[in-house]
Nucleic acid binder design. Sequence first.
DNA 1: ATTTTCACCGATAGTACTATCGGTGAAAAT
DNA 2: ATTTTCACCGATAGTACTATCGGTGAAAAT
Lengths: 217, 217
Amino acid sequence: MTSTPLSRSEAKDQTRRRLIRAALAILDEAGEAGLTTVKVAKAAGIAQSSFYVHFKDMQDLLRVLAEEGGRRLRTSMREARRAAREAPGDLQRHRDTFRIPLEAICRHPELLRIQLRARHDPSSSLRDFATESAAAYREHHAADLAALGYTADDEHDRRRLEMIADGIDAATNALAIGHLEGRYPDLDEAADILVALSRGALRLLRSSSGRDEGPRD
Amino acid sequence: MTSTPLSRSEAKDQTRRRLIRAALAILDEAGEAGLTTVKVAKAAGIAQSSFYVHFKDMQDLLRVLAEEGGRRLRTSMREARRAAREAPGDLQRHRDTFRIPLEAICRHPELLRIQLRARHDPSSSLRDFATESAAAYREHHAADLAALGYTADDEHDRRRLEMIADGIDAATNALAIGHLEGRYPDLDEAADILVALSRGALRLLRSSSGRDEGPRD
DNA sequence: ATTTTCACCGATAGTACTATCGGTGAAAAT
DNA sequence: ATTTTCACCGATAGTACTATCGGTGAAAAT
């Protein structure tokens, strides 16, 4: 009701944000194939041709979405890891290590869905982004494990760490999606499963490392 | 050079198979968005309009591909489980339980890729098929675990079994894809990781079941 | 031998979308 | 007060694809 008189650049910026928000929603609901300048512009309340005032073409918008989404996800995950480090007990800490990423995914499920889809779609403009994003997350997870004291001495060990990180990440995504689909109502249960999975894998590393300096889990 | 004179129906059947084969290849290379009657017909060596002699529309072809792919995957997996049951030793048996599905995936990677893609793509005609397929595989895996003697008495236990199956399946897919991408050259290493992951999870079940009749792993 | 069937063809109308262009009015600059 | 800028508009040419239609010749049926 209190209509603020917007400057021209403020108004343009608002329109741009409306376009991005509309695009994310359409991407989530209709997929990349359903994302057209017609739909995005209409959902944002402007003419189709005005789309080009804000973006060079659809590819350009997708690039922006990828950056935006990547930034959001990275922020979520960074917070998750920080929170996990600061958590109190040992079991609770370990559980939180998985619970918090699960929650981060569930907070913006469309970002994961869009990434998972693009990851295996050769026609997707977001494919490279999704691939790099998955690699970064996997390698970061592996580095975390190495930092916890698990062996990463030679090529073979490092590859094992990476495979474990990869497997756990995939399981995390699968359980988060199951939760979103209503199959696993309790995220704590899901976190417990992930704790158990990772314990099994880490036991493998410790037992084969020869020296027993691996951390308690 | 010895040209067999084909009957009309034989020739039609060959054309149909060429269309299906071409469609699978295009689907794998260009995604569902790149799958058009123009490309499929051209790749199969017929006129675009002749596509409609064999299929009502693209949707119809996709339905056939889904059935075909599902049949192939089910056959692969059934063989895998049978072979795993018949394998000799205990460790080797357990490793094979995972190695064989990994190999099955790597034999027809396009089927997995197509399924993974469709699974999260709301615009995909194959989405329902992919969802059902994933559910069937997950539930079958969970039933296998239950048959091995792990508790599945109440709702909670059954859900845990399903989550474990879900997580392991996701990890299996992730490692198979990593292998195909050249990151994990040795499938045995990947199988070992999966064995370790599943051991951790199954330990969880046994320890909480109260009774110690769970199988050795 | 004659007729019928049908897999395939080229042409084409219809649909959906992209991206450009000239115009407009209000904000911003002068 | 006047000029310039520019976010947005409607119209439209261009592109890619779908799906139908009438025609053709060889296989199949009679």
